[in-house]
Amino acid sequence: TGRNQSASEYELTYATPYPPMHPFSRADQRWMTFVEERSSGRLSIRPFWGGALLSADQSVIEIRHGVADIGLITPIYMKGGMHASRAQAGFYGGVRTMEDQVAILKCASHDFPVFSQELRGLRVLALQGGNFPGVLTRSKPVRSLADLQGMRLRTQSETIDVLRRLGADPVDMPMSEVYSALAKGVIDGVVAPADTLKALHLAEVGSYFTELRISRGSYPARAMSLRAWDKLPADLQAVLIESQPVWERALMDEVMRGQEAGYQFGREKGVELIPISAEDQRHFDEVAQQSAAHRAQSLSKYGIDGEAILHRIQELVHERADGKVLSCDGALVGEGV
C-alpha cells in the first residue's frame, strides 16, 4: 500500500472483473469519488478494471493474500469454502427490494458466525443485492408456468433445481455463448435480469421477456484485505466505514439504471413484456421455497446449520413485509488470517 508515485498519502488498489462501463463499475467509481473527497485527497483508489488484476471466482483468496487491497468478490461463484454465503442468496423468497435484501443479510450475518469464518482475512466494505431475473425466450412465449414445460433454458446454477421441478430443461453453458445459442435456437430461452437485454444484446435474439420474479438475495460483494485495513490510520478507516452505505446505495441505483436501460432497449427491439399472474407467481415462490429448503438441508454435509439460516432469513423477510425497520449495525468482518 502507499505507493510513492501517487500524489495522495495513501493509495489503495481496487480490482474488479467488470469493465469500467458496467453498472457495477459505475457504482464503484461513485464510491471512489466519495472516498477521495471525504478524505480530502489523503486516500486515493487506483482501479483495475476488466479482470486485469483479480479473477472472477477466486478473488476472495486473492484479496486475502494482497493481490489487490480492495476488490469485488462473488461468493456465489466460489465452488468451495463459502457454502453458507453462497447458499443463503437463495433463501430470500418473497423479498421485495434490493434495500431489503441488503438489510436482511446484515442482520442475519450477526446471528451466524459461519459468515465471518468464511470471510477469513477480509473486511466487507459493501453488500449487494440484485434485481429479479425474468425469463427471456426466443420463439415460444412463457405466459404461464405451464409453458415452461420442456423448455430448454440457460440458467445460473441456483435456479436449476427450481426449473427442473417446474418441468423445464435447464442447461448450463458459458454466458458468452448465450447470444449465439439463443439466436440459433440451441436454447429456447435464458433466465436473466432485464439489464442483459442491453448489456449482452439479448434483446436482439429474444422476443419475449416474462416478468417472473425469481427471488434472490444479497451477498458480501466488495471486500478489503484485513492486512491493508490494519495499515490505515483510524481516521481513514472511519472514511471507509462511512463509505459503506454510499457504495451500497450507488450499487442499487446503478443496477436499477441498468435494468431500465435493458427494458428501454428491449422495447426498441420489439421484445414483448409478459406479466405473470399472481397465482403463478405464488406457485413459483412455493416451488422455489421447497428448493431452498432442500438446499438448506444439504448444507449440513459441510457442518453448516442451513435450516437455521433459512429460517432466520425468512423471518426477516416477513418482518420487512410487515413494515418493520431492520437496522443491524456493524460491519461484516472476517476472522484474522
Binding site: I61, K79, G80, H83
Partner: peptide, 22 residues
C-alpha cells in the same frame, strides 16, 4: 499448493455433478 491447502477442507466441487475439485 497454498490455494489447495486453503480450499482443501472447503469441499470445493462442481455445481451439478459435485465433481470434487481438490
Amino acid at each position: 499448493i497454498w490455494i489447495a491447502r486453503e480450499l482443501w477442507g472447503g469441499h470445493e466441487h462442481s455445481e451439478l455433478l459435485h465433481i470434487p475439485l481438490r
